[in-house]
Design a binder for these strands. Structure first.
Lengths: 226, 226
DNA sequence: CGAAGCGTTGAATCCTCTCAATAACCGTGG
DNA sequence: CCACGGTTATTGAGAGGATTCAACGCTTCG
């Protein structure tokens, strides 16, 4: 059982920067945050299951959460949520059951919003609805992007794209540090862990060096044309 | 060049039932529809291109529209829009360029909504924003569903699922008539046309008979456990 | 009747998954 | 500090699924 705590000041500040609240003014933000409490999960904890009764939606404060579908033997990840990401907002508008399961990776602290309270809030604070719609739009776009990539690109290309969009550029060179385990990155990209490994070693040809979570890119231009 | 026409009464009625307007009352609906005109496209016409400047979003009145990404040699379809489906609404809230290309399949008549007008409408009619959010939620859910299926199921299973969700049931038997070309169904399911063909012939074993666009299912239960 | 477009079928190739074995890494406790 | 067990990552081999390319049949339409 997870305990519900009041949001700390640091968490409130963090939520203010999250997409879901970033477009709101002080008063609207407070109204939205008043629907939320902080909850903490251990690694591997399941927050909710596909088809389960929906009472809350969430925003990640720290750690990572994976959204996935399917039963024991066959699972597919839909999204990996990082700090600042929210998930399940669509339930404010549509449906009363979860459409996927959610599991904490590592220790995770989340803001948990009560769906009923937020629904009521929509009438008093129309701009809160707009903020949610903005968040939904963003998710829709990135999910479509993901779908198109899955259908169009090979594992190498997907990995190369991830690196290029997450590295800190330093002239022709660049580098990054993976924020989570490789197995989680594999899931995010829709690959088996082995396939990610192979993609990395194939990318060595294009000047990518991997050691643990640290990754160095020799020539950004070379990597781009993979 | 496509000409803009006033929405006919039939089209207005049709739009009223479409997801994007179905939750609105008379007055709100009229306000929303006042942002729209009817436009007609020939088969293969491109409505807009990825990265193009976004001025409108659309709702399909008749025909089909495919949303896709990628360049000449390598394309991937993201969604096939049928009558009643809207696309591009996310631009009301986020961004100013299209994130994918859109092409009419067959002759298509669409309602074309002016983004600027709808944006202005949001402040006066907060429930219009809510209707758009509902539509976005629905799209997000179905896109995630599609993504999960792509990652989890084989071509046979995807085809079987399509049949089962679109057939009219008659006891153990069932049947349906494809609303469009098989090549378009293939795109929708993320398959090469040949793969769809092969999937159909593999499903003969499970009691699926295909002749032209007419499809008969001998035993729904048998098909379910594919 | 011929041409064009759609759909099917076959063969070859490519990519990814699965399974299994090995190697590297991590936190724990001696 | 090192040894240990457990987890995570890599590598290889094999199989399966889907794509590509090409040829052929079928239908439609001029």
């Amino acid at each position: 059982m997870t305990r519900a705590l009041k949001l700390s000041n640091a968490h409130q500040a963090m939520l203010g920067d999250a997409l879901i609240a970033s477009s709101l003014d002080r008063q609207e933000r407070d109204a939205l945050l008043s629907c939320a409490v902080a909850v903490r999960y251990e690694p591997q904890d399941v927050l909710f299951r596909e088809d389960g009764n929906a009472r809350y939606f969430y925003c990640v404060l720290s750690g990572y959460v994976r959204l996935y579908r399917g039963s024991e033997d066959r699972e597919a990840d839909i999204r990996i949520c990082e700090p600042g990401d929210s998930f399940g907002e669509c339930l404010v508008l549509v449906g009363d059951r979860y459409n996927y399961s959610a599991q904490a990776m590592e220790h995770a602290i989340l803001a948990r919003f009560d769906l009923g309270q937020v629904k009521r809030l929509l009438d008093e604070q129309p701009r809160v609805g707009r903020a949610i719609a903005r968040s939904l739009s963003q998710h829709l776009l990135s999910t479509m992007d993901c779908l198109a990539r899955d259908r169009m690109q090979t594992s190498q290309q997907r990995v190369a794209h991830y690196l290029l969009t997450h590295c800190t550029n330093e002239g022709a060179r660049a580098s990054l540090r993976l924020p989570f385990q490789k197995s989680l990155l594999a899931r995010k990209l829709g690959l088996a862990p082995e396939a990610l490994s192979r993609a990395f070693s194939a990318l060595r040809t294009s000047g990518v060096t991997v050691s643990g979570r640290a990754i160095a890119i020799e020539d950004v231009r070379a990597l781009r044309q993979v």
